[in-house]
Simulated assay, not measured.
Amino acid sequence: MQHAAEHSLPERGRAGDEIGDQIDWDLDTPASRRIVVAMSGGVDSSVVAALAAGTGAEVIGVTLQLYDHGEAVGRAGSCCAGRDIRDARAVCDRLGIAHYVFDHESSFRTQVVDRFADEYLAGRTPIPCVQCNTGPKFTDLLTLARDLGADCLATGHYVQRVAGPAGAELHRGSDPARDQSYFLFGTTQQQLEYLRFPLGALPKSRVRAIAADLGLGVAGKPDSQDICFVPDGDYAGLVRKLRPDADTAGEIVDMAGRPLGRHKGLIHFTVGQRRGLEIGGQAEPLYVVRLEPDSRQVVVGPRAALAVGAAHLTDINWIGGDHVGPLHAKVRSMARPVPARLDGDRLVFDAPEYGVAPGQAAVLYAGERVLGGGWIAATEPVALAA
């Protein structure tokens, strides 16, 4: 565990003053409070730390070292690389706030990395960023923040925490291009009461302007593009390293089970995928319809075969209060929310939905509010889901 020396807080620039005055920290007399900020070394969390410091509160920056060894050491664009820890420390030093680094690599490996590999082997498409948010990012950080006597934990996520009649509500970020609510559906009501998201109403350009105005060295730092623990975006390579049998070859078959070709391993495919099948001479384009881990088969078919009428969800997290009836569901991070209804653990779509992959999350909304969500365990073709 390391910390930065404390210095006097530099004066905030005009952008920081203007935005800082608009943020509702939902704290009585913030100047007498303690705020812990989750710091990744990027521009978003750095600006959150600056805005928190501008309230006059005692601010502590905390960075979790999740995956900073081997191939990931020094990897630019990785949220856990050594460079990012140094950047977070430099920002805290600039702001005159304490900075602590906690080694949580072991729990991250168990909760996120190993599960990522196992999901691919089981023929599912994992979302490690959700697992990280519901594990080390929030559970561990919340525990640390409370141990440090903090009144709240602030992060740089682009979502909004809105005071509702029954308590705090989670809403989408105001900038659709930056909204991260899909990845936070697993946030519990108890966690939401303690969390703060100061950037939820801001566009990224405004955040960078604040960082530049405050003289933060990360103002122009590129956003992370890949999963932090996957070097060069080579997902299959990492799974192969962790699970040597992941590259077992198998057949590519049509909906009737007729062989059409061979593949080099299920880890290279996901439901809805069209490229990489390397099957020629077909009358129409073929897509991955499902993966069969027991037989190692990749089942392909026309786009119509991807039409899903319902999905079965597991581990549903509900933060929607007493909401009942129709809602909207988002089944991929880049998908648009579509009308649906939830009947127990069964999510029924109003119209056929395409590319619904087991292993992904289905996140539920009522307008801008996040109601919760669950993991897609299985899907029903349109003909069976009426």
Results as ranks from 00 to 15, higher is better:
Met1Asp: 12
Glu6Ile: 15
Pro10Glu: 12
Gly20Pro: 03
Ala31Lys: 12
Val37Pro: 01
Arg86Ser: 10
Ala88Val: 02
Ala88Ile: 01
Cys92Ile: 03
Ser107Asp: 09
Phe108Arg: 08
Arg109Tyr: 12
Val112Trp: 01
Val113Lys: 05
Asp118Pro: 01
Pro126Glu: 01
Pro128Tyr: 08
Gln131Phe: 13
Thr134Phe: 12
Thr143Gln: 12
Leu148Ala: 12
Gly149Met: 01
Gly156Asn: 14
His171Leu: 06
Gly173Gln: 05
Asp175Trp: 09
Ala177Gln: 14
Phe185Ile: 13
Leu192Met: 09
Glu193Pro: 04
Leu195Val: 05
Arg196Tyr: 14
Ala201Thr: 15
Ala209His: 09
Ala211Ser: 15
Gly217Met: 13
Ser224His: 09
Ser224Ala: 14
Asp226Met: 14
Phe229Met: 06
Gly233Leu: 06
Arg240Phe: 10
Lys241Cys: 12
Gly250Met: 06
Glu251Ile: 04
Met255Asn: 06
Met255Ser: 10
Leu260Met: 05
Leu266His: 06
Gly280Cys: 03
Pro285Ile: 04
Leu286Thr: 01
Val288Phe: 07
Pro302Ser: 11
Pro302Thr: 13
Ala305Ile: 01
Leu306Pro: 01
Ala310Asp: 06
Asn317Arg: 11
Pro326Cys: 05
Leu327Arg: 04
Val331Asp: 05
Val338Met: 12
Val338Thr: 15
Tyr354Glu: 07
Tyr354Asn: 01
Val356Cys: 02
Val356Arg: 05
Ala362Tyr: 02
Gly373Tyr: 08
Gly373Arg: 07
Leu384Arg: 12
